[in-house]
Design a protein around this nucleic acid. Structure first.
Lengths: 262, 262
DNA sequence: TCGCATCGTTCGGATTCCGAAACCCAGGAG
DNA sequence: CTCCTGGGTTTCGGAATCCGAACGATGCGA
């Protein structure tokens, strides 16, 4: 459910438990959740972090944000201290109490003075804090610093490669047979996941789990559609897919193609 | 509202399910217990989960449900929070306290709100929760996700090998004497089962049980047909089968062939 | 606010897969 | 030699599954 904790075994028995899938790190540089009730601040943060290639998701209420964090892969949380329902401290405690989110980086947005002690003091277990009003630069700097500190622990391949297909998560660039291809965020995640587990078969349900997230509920058929769209973009002949193969009755898989000389 | 149908008092060890035969790439096939006093909800859940090939057993009272769980093999429990006698929290605690059921996945059906915090993470140790009113699709998705996370722990060995026949469950690739062979999902399961129990003889009925599933009603002769199809694909001379042998009056078996030098 | 891109759903049609039945063949018992 | 039993083979209809396309919803940026 999040980037850290146990190292994934090299040989994964099943596309299951062994953490790999759970923790599948979104091929964006990172996913940030901000829980903050002032819309303006959310927008400000979103705008600035997005410029850095970070995906930002905002929640106005503590409960909803906490729910999301628990059920989806997230790389960092920005927490306002004062919220209408659950306050930031409580959320942070809850995050720390749950195995699945224990090591999730938490950064507080705090108004001032006295709170700071509680935040930084081990009491809560926050990773950093930013004092409001903050400068965008400072925010970005701190967030990135925390990410640098935490993420590398897990050797996440930023670049996935298979045959002539190459995806770079940090820039979100995709190259197929040397050509740059334009993918949507979802398409990128889906392809990235498949490419980083070549030859392995994934059921639609599983793909929905790891690519869409645990609290999206869409028809398994949706996967078909996106596979189709991907084929249209990366296959030589979309009618006879080589990379993205259907395994009838089981799901889909990515099959690296030997570099064809032409 | 009582244990409906499925009185099969099958003798299976305990929490872990009989393990052996089940799931290769097969649909989940698991036993779900739901403890919930609203009959409509039970029906809704039953209907939807059954569509996914899951067995559902409903109880209207906490005590009865808990009793059942303790004495029978179950793969997942759905718990209503509010029940006439024991409430969901108590049941969950009891489940967690018992060695035999400690690792049994628990999913709560909860009416929004503050309950959620108690349910997830800390205190209780539930695996997931669904907020009422829930969409059938969400329910199904969550249940299956939890199952996927838990069950594979004792998955079938990925690779089965016998003589020159090699099957990899993760990629569903089959190699016979070095050549890739294309099998349908069912053929794969059948062959995989036979190969992973070399030399052992299985009756048609047994194979139907294990490969097709306990609740499929299929003529034993169907096995013949599939054995034949397999022979056509993997035998050197389908008329004189070496790998897939008939044992007259008993059934079939897989016989690994000594690597023939060529 | 409008427009564009992305995403999810649905439905008809094509394809593959599976199950059952019918028939054939081989071997053994009497 | 004939009957009888159990396995093998073929065929066919229906079911499951997947694909393609079109449509509608949503959200984001200009």
């Amino acid at each position: 459910m999040l980037p850290m904790e146990h190292e994934s075994a090299e040989v994964v028995p099943f596309p299951g438990r062994s953490g790999d899938a759970e923790r599948y790190n979104a091929p964006v540089a990172a996913r940030i959740v901000i829980i903050e009730d002032e819309k303006d601040i959310v927008e400000l943060v979103r705008y600035n972090l997005r410029k850095e290639g970070l995906e930002v998701l905002g929640f106005g209420r503590g409960r909803e944000g906490l729910d999301y964090i628990r059920r989806n892969p997230v790389d960092l949380v920005l927490l306002d201290v004062l919220l209408p329902d659950l306050d930031g401290f409580e959320i942070c405690r809850a995050v720390r109490a749950d195995d699945r989110t224990r090591s999730l980086p938490v950064v507080f947005l705090t108004a001032k003075g006295a709170e700071i002690d509680r935040v930084v003091g081990l009491e809560i277990g926050a990773d950093d804090y930013v004092v409001k009003p903050f400068s965008p630069r400072e925010l970005v700097a701190r967030v990135k610093a925390v990410l640098r500190r935490k993420l590398p622990a897990e050797a996440v391949r930023e670049v996935a490669e298979g045959g002539e297909v190459r995806l770079d998560a940090s820039t979100r660039e995709v190259t197929v047979r040397g050509k740059l291809v334009d993918l949507s965020a979802l398409e990128f995640r889906l392809l990235h996941y498949l490419v980083s587990h070549p030859r392995r078969i994934f059921s639609r349900d599983r793909l929905l789990d790891v690519v869409w997230g645990r609290d999206r509920f869409v028809t398994p058929r949706t996967v078909d559609v996106h596979i189709r769209r991907l084929r249209a973009k990366i296959e030589v002949d979309p009618d006879n897919p080589l990379y993205l193969q259907t395994v009838r009755g089981s799901g889909y898989r990515f099959l690296p193609q030997p570099d064809a000389a032409d």
